[in-house]
């Protein structure tokens, strides 16, 4: 695999994107290297499962390859990419649910303590975030880490704005409880 320095200037990235749009796979390798850690970090925080995060991150880069013509350059590429990644991770979680969880709308728990210990790359706050239950975790990551507004989160998750806010407060309360009991 080719390697690229992570400090790639924006104009170089734009040139890479144009090459990718014309079907240049070697340019896409470089683009992947620039963004994989950020995309994987987002998927891991949202999904709280290493294996699922790996699958979702792969899915992101396969879909972006097919959809890159839709990127019109009006926003930063990273902003567009992270929006695609968060949508894919959210949909990935929906697809993982079995019929009982879908019918009864049961949310999945976060990682247990052993899984947190086993999961490499998590430090400090991240170790607490991945323990949050699904809805609280997703809202917290999208709001506090990724900087989305509650209105945007509500639309992405298909919930009411009020629910997004209450899940955020639930997440904060749980994080505080765990932090103070550590």
């Amino acid at each position: 695999m080719l390697h690229v320095k992570p400090e790639q200037p924006a104009e170089c990235e734009n040139a890479l994107i144009e090459r990718v749009k014309s079907g240049d796979q070697s340019a896409y390798t470089l683009l992947y290297q620039l963004h994989i850690k950020r995309v994987y970090g987002l998927c891991l925080r949202l999904l709280a499962d290493q294996s699922h995060a790996e699958d979702a991150a792969q899915e992101v880069f396969v879909q972006v390859w097919h959809k890159i013509a839709m990127f019109d350059g009006r926003s930063q590429f990273s902003t567009w990419l992270h929006s695609v990644a968060s949508n894919i991770a959210i949909n990935y979680l929906r697809k993982q649910k079995n019929w009982v969880q879908k019918v009864v709308s049961i949310e999945q728990d976060g990682m247990d303590e052993q899984s947190v210990k086993d999961c490499k790359g998590l430090n400090g706050l991240d170790k607490l975030i991945v323990r949050l239950p699904e809805r609280a975790r997703m809202v917290f990551v999208l709001f506090a880490v990724e900087g989305y507004r509650h209105e945007e989160i509500a639309e992405q998750l298909g919930i009411a704005v009020g629910s997004s806010k209450s899940q955020y407060h639930r997440a904060r309360q749980l994080l505080q409880e765990w932090y103070e009991n550590e």
Binding site: I36, K37, G41, A57, V62, W65, V145
Partner: peptide, 25 residues
């Protein structure tokens, strides 16, 4: 403090490119 200093990048533990490459080649 944690949110301000949070490193948003996390390296995956395995190479994900090989699977992506197979899918897009």
């Amino acid at each position: 403090k944690s949110l301000n200093t949070l490193d948003k990048e996390i390296a995956p533990q395995k190479d994900l490119w090989a699977g992506i490459e197979r899918a897009i080649v």
